[in-house]
Nucleic acid binder design. Structure first.
Lengths: 154, 154
DNA sequence: GAGTATTGTTCAGTGCACCGACGAAAACGA
DNA sequence: TCGTTTTCGTCGGTGCACTGAACAATACTC
């Protein structure tokens, strides 16, 4: 039986891409704050007071994962978590001063890292790169979260 | 402080892409065998008897991770692990019949899944997609594994 | 208003992915 | 040949990511 060529398997390429990014992040941005953690801080800068589930939706993490990420950020004093008095199910999230400061600091470094990461591509190619990845990811996410169920409910 | 636009952050896109793939894999290929596990099986079909470290290198996993993946595959009887009598440091790996059978079965499903995953792209776009991702990933891996050290040794 | 469904969070379990440190085996060098 | 260095595998620790189940609070419906 012939072995498959993994270099034409998008899943394998996606994993390698993500790992390469992980290494570069550690080297150039921060060893304390991870990329998903930064995504959470970034979301709360844009929309303070969001509940936990919505933050997870914004950054593309499921409920279990976002809970862990937030718990770590909260333990380190980068954000505050308060029960919504209007709806006792929700936890509302706000950055602390320290969290906002950290976000500011990392924003600069993140931009620098992205330059290095994308250095192999021309400006035009970067546009295409974003577009293609986004289209594939959006389509696959749509398969699992059908606005219109694939089979009409009976 | 303005929040960054994560849709132009390659790391964030890479993570989303990988997660989308993970979900599709579970739905269309297997809930037992993961994509990295398949990559290991695939490598051993092509090159039986490789040692553990080299397999990790082929599929892009570090020593700790490949050890865990192989331990799981071995526990499930999909591969055999034997100390190299020539070199007592190495573990040599071979697929079992069951492992080869599993690989054959999944190869078909994997191809089908890739079709669905890449459905949003035209044939030309798929070529570009592979090329761009590969170039970025290769370059970033090169940064950490410098053939020529970035700073000449003293 | 009481019973049922939905929603937000948490918990337990599995698996990937890294780092740094350790021990054993082999290769190298004086 | 005997020490030093390199290499392979393992172990412990941290963090991301999913599923499925449990629980509490709210919303819906009769």
């Amino acid at each position: 039986m012939a072995a498959a060529d993994l270099t034409t398997h998008p899943g394998h390429l996606a994993r390698r891409l993500q790992q390469a990014h992980y290494l570069l992040w550690n080297a150039m941005v921060s060893e304390e704050i991870t990329s998903p953690q930064f995504a959470v801080l970034n979301t709360l800068v844009a929309e303070p007071g969001l509940d936990q589930r919505t933050v997870g939706e914004r950054v593309g993490l499921d409920r279990s994962t976002i809970a862990e990420v937030i718990s770590r950020l909260s333990r380190r004093g980068l954000l505050d978590k308060v029960r919504d008095p209007q709806d006792g199910r929700r936890s509302l999230l706000h950055l602390t001063d320290e969290g906002a400061r950290t976000h500011r600091r990392l924003t600069v470094r993140t931009a620098r890292m992205n330059q290095v990461f994308l250095a192999p591509l021309t400006a035009d190619e970067r546009t295409v790169f974003f577009d293609l990845i986004r289209r594939v990811a959006d389509a696959a996410e749509g398969l699992r979260n059908p606005e219109e169920p694939l089979v009409a409910p009976h």
